[in-house]
């Protein structure tokens, strides 16, 4: 939630559960190697400044690939979505031009391209149109077997989106989180080794003070169990478990939640 929304819902905590990655998917027949893209080149493609696949700036990043002189068709999400938010957040982080002209949001004013509805719409449009490039949640890219670009992270590595690379993106953030942290902190353009740069948290919204203690304890049990045992199931759905030290911080934050008139902690065994 942004500040305006937070002010309408005071005392609500954002507790991360898993991490999601946004994959850059493309359709380029004849190119079998994965394409490598830097943040700036990606931003310029979505700004409409790079219009063809054989642009020298793309070729420079991909020495072994012979690109066709095909027009690039940008495909974006039209329904307001977190996926769009994360992707535009990343482009704003890596490209001053993007930040100034477009910015970050769940719906933005796209400088070029076609809009499709939902992850499935973007995936469908990319798969059908030669020369198309779009962004989808990692799970959709995997399920629809689209080619995904290796995106350069802040450390200069080109990383393919994967569950492991997404977990790695959050690993570096632990130092920035103080005691009783607010987890509304962006993890795009992460720099750790093997970190995929277009990633974000998925939150549960939990009130910091709950009414009924019986319900609150059951809720705490569910959250604890998901954080400690849910990782494997998340992985199968292409969502990444939190790095262990971040998970411990989230569990610590959960212990600060209280219930009932006497404000008892909702996590037992304290």
């Amino acid at each position: 939630m942004n500040e305006e929304e937070m002010s309408k819902a005071p005392g609500v905590l954002h507790l991360p559960t898993v991490l999601g990655a946004v994959a850059v998917a493309y359709n380029l027949p004849g190119v079998s190697q994965p394409v490598r893209l830097s943040g700036e080149v990606l931003a310029d493609i979505f700004l409409g400044r790079i219009k063809r696949w054989n642009d020298p700036r793309i070729a420079q990043l991909n020495p072994g690939i012979n690109f066709p002189s095909r027009d690039i068709l940008v495909v974006y999400r039209t329904d307001g979505s977190g996926t769009t938010y994360v992707f535009t957040d990343y482009l704003s982080a890596v490209s001053p031009a993007w930040k100034q002209q477009v910015g970050t949001g769940k719906s933005v004013r796209w400088p070029t391209g076609l809009g499709a509805k939902g992850n499935e719409g973007v995936a469908g449009q990319v798969r059908q149109t030669e020369g198309a490039i779009g962004y989808v949640e990692l799970a959709y890219a995997k399920q629809t077997n689209l080619s995904t670009a290796a995106v350069q992270n802040a450390a200069g590595e080109f990383v393919q989106p994967s569950v492991e690379a997404t977990t790695a993106a959050a690993a570096g953030i632990a130092d920035k989180l103080g005691p009783n942290p607010d987890f509304r902190i962006s993890i795009v353009n992460a720099g750790g080794s093997g970190a995929y740069p277009i990633a974000s948290w998925t939150y549960l919204l939990v009130p910091s003070q709950l009414q009924a203690c019986a319900k609150a304890r059951a809720l705490a049990g569910v959250i604890e169990w998901s954080l400690t045992h849910g990782g494997e199931q998340a992985r199968q759905l292409h969502y990444a478990p939190l790095p262990e030290h971040v998970r411990d911080q989230v569990l610590g934050r959960l212990r600060t939640v209280t219930c009932g008139p006497s404000r008892e902690p909702i996590v037992a065994g304290e």
Binding site: E4, E5, T78, D79, G80, S81, K106, S107, G115, K117
Partner: peptide, 20 residues
Amino acid sequence: APGYTMASVLANEFAEASGD
């Protein structure tokens, strides 16, 4: 050329519109 309709923008953006 692509276009947009009034009903479409409502369906697309209403659910996640933030801000009064």
